[in-house]
Design a binder for these strands. Structure first.
Length: 545
DNA sequence: CGCTTTTGACCAGCGC
DNA sequence: GCGCTGGTCAAAAGCG
């Protein structure tokens, strides 16, 4: 990351030098001209150059702040790692011990589900009895439509010996039976291909019986979400319990690429698209696909490595009580068995098989706090419930060729440069990183400065909204920290930060800050740097046409 | 013409 | 063993 920032800094200097040279050239070109019109143009050009110079200065400021944050957090991170006596005593464990003394750390297989928004603990408690009744009649629960910010990071531990017998199943947030089955169907393991060579072999070697999958639930009205990669559809099935067909895709960037994904629409809410990824790409990816690919592969790797320390499985399936912090719910489960846990959770993830641990990113939720975001009406209509947007918007045209776009013609955008779009909001620190990423694309070099500044304004306004909501920040940070702390090792956090480009910058500030808060240490000063983020509006642009 | 999508057939795993 | 289900294959059709 540091190297990346240095490279970015260097790039900014080069850009400024070029601007100075261009200024000089312009002066040479027009110094002998004696036409007022030319003088006006010259002045105009100089003004533009000054704007570009100012922009470079702003970028340098971003870079400096990023570097400061990085250095500071690196120090804090080392201290945290150093202070921890036992690597297995993670932030995550400390947190849960703080709230639930019976909590046990992650073990063997587990699912991690990042649930963003939709339901707060208060609402869940309030509605739990009602939902139980509804569930008992097998009715459909659409609690996703409830407003309210919540960010759940759940790890389901089904190991009974480690679990409290508190009947959490009944007090848990609820989800309909159909929803559950559907998600189970969507996350069903892909059969392992004998002789299949893939980059995740190292993971498979560590856990030969396990094959991690990363599922993403997003609201999307198109057949598939744009993750920046090229996919070839090779099959389609009507899965049991869901009238919507399940589509099977394999990566078509390289013929031998083992990566596959399943796409299925939620029968309960047709606007929700469930995409399940498996495997790692064995080829270079378009820039647009880097974020998603690295995130999913890192999630899978982390999932497997984190689950490798465990003891055996058990038949019973239950769940730890939810841990609440800053409106954030933590659930632990161990999907050691193929049986479904007897509870229903909005935004939760489940492993359908012991050989297939999975991680689910549920980005379908809505939250009241998010409604304050200055989103255009069309945006709200198209994607009314997505909460987080780890995205940026610097395509070659300075508009939004974002990778998690929503359109079947996403291939048109693949080479334009984009990023992983985790919903709506880009944490402010992500901007410099993605700015660098985008600028490394040759097509970005000529981007329009004015459009850039217009984007910046909208981004800044959105950033103000997110920075004005500390509960949201802490919730997201805590969720990410929980993942880091799942094994308590610093390397895990580092791996996460390195491998999850969309998370790295955010982790470097808010996550560790939340970690500190939970551990009783004073929080780090938050970065005050400006940010860049955009809505998913342009992701849906093609779709809306 | 090449690539993608469609779709029926086939295979494997699992439960009864 | 049989049926069900999920996942994959591959030929045909569609598309630019």
């Amino acid at each position: 990351m540091e190297e990346t920032l240095k490279r970015k800094d260097h790039g900014s200097e080069i850009k400024e030098e070029n601007i100075n040279e261009s200024n000089h050239d312009i002066d040479e070109e027009f110094k002998d001209e004696d036409v007022p019109k030319m003088d006006d143009e010259l002045e105009s050009a100089k003004a533009k150059m000054n704007e570009a110079r100012e922009e470079n200065q702003r970028l340098k400021t971003y870079l400096d702040k990023m570097m400061n944050d990085y250095q500071r957090l690196q120090t804090h991170f080392k201290n945290i790692v150093h202070d921890k006596g036992s690597p297995k005593k993670s932030t995550y464990t400390a947190l849960n011990q703080r709230h639930h003394h019976e909590f046990q750390g992650p073990d063997d297989q587990f699912d991690v589900s990042l649930t963003l928004g939709r339901s707060s603990s208060i609402e869940l408690k309030r509605d739990s009895s009602l939902k139980r009744d509804e569930r008992s009649t097998n009715s459909v629960v659409h609690d996703r439509d409830r407003p309210g910010l919540g960010l759940d990071c759940r790890t389901f531990d089904t190991q009974p010996s480690l679990l409290p017998k508190q009947g959490l199943a009944e007090s848990s947030p609820l989800r309909s039976v159909d929803d559950l089955k559907e998600e189970e169907d969507a996350e069903k393991c892909l059969p392992e291909k004998s002789g299949k060579v893939s980059e995740d072999d190292e993971v498979s070697q560590q856990n030969p019986a396990k094959k991690a999958r990363v599922s993403v639930r997003v609201r999307c009205n198109t057949t598939t979400m744009n993750d920046g990669c090229q996919w070839r559809k090779y099959g389609q099935k009507i899965a049991k319990g869901n009238p919507c067909p399940r589509a099977y895709y394999r990566c078509s960037v390289a013929p031998s690429c083992p990566v596959r994904k399943q796409v299925q629409r939620c029968s309960q809410d047709m606007s929700i698209l469930i995409t399940t990824y498996e495997g790692k790409h064995n080829h270079t990816l378009p820039i647009a696909a880097h974020a998603m690919a690295s995130t999913t592969s890192a999630a899978a790797t982390m999932l497997l490595s984190g689950s490798s320390t465990s003891s055996g499985a058990s038949a019973a399936t239950t769940m730890t009580p939810p841990v609440e912090l800053h409106g954030l719910h933590y659930y632990l489960s161990n999907s050691s068995t193929s049986s479904r846990p007897p509870f229903y959770l909005p935004n939760s993830s489940f492993s359908s098989s012991s050989s297939c641990p999975s991680i689910t990113l549920d980005l379908t939720s809505s939250s009241s706090s998010m409604t304050s975001f200055p989103l255009p009406p069309r945006y709200n209509n198209l994607n009314s419930s997505t909460n987080l947007n780890f995205s940026t918007s610097f395509g070659s045209n300075s508009t939004l060729p974002i990778s998690w776009g929503y359109g079947t013609n996403y291939h048109k955008n693949i080479q334009m440069g984009s990023s992983l779009n985790f919903g709506r909001q880009l944490p402010e620190n992500l901007y410099p990183y993605y700015s660098y990423m985008q600028k490394t694309n040759s097509t970005v070099a000529a981007q329009n400065q004015r459009s850039l500044q217009m984007d910046k304004k909208s981004i800044e306004s959105a950033t103000k909204a997110i920075t004005a909501d500390p509960s949201f920040q802490s919730a997201l940070a805590a969720a990410l920290t929980t993942i880091i702390g799942s094994d308590g090792s610093g390397s895990q956090a580092l791996k996460l930060e390195q491998s999850f480009p969309v998370l790295s910058s955010f982790l470097s500030t808010n996550s560790l800050q939340a970690s500190k808060m939970r551990l009783g240490s004073p929080p780090l000063p938050s970065s005050s740097s400006k940010s860049k983020s955009t809505s998913m509006e342009d992701d849906c642009r093609d779709e809306a046409r």
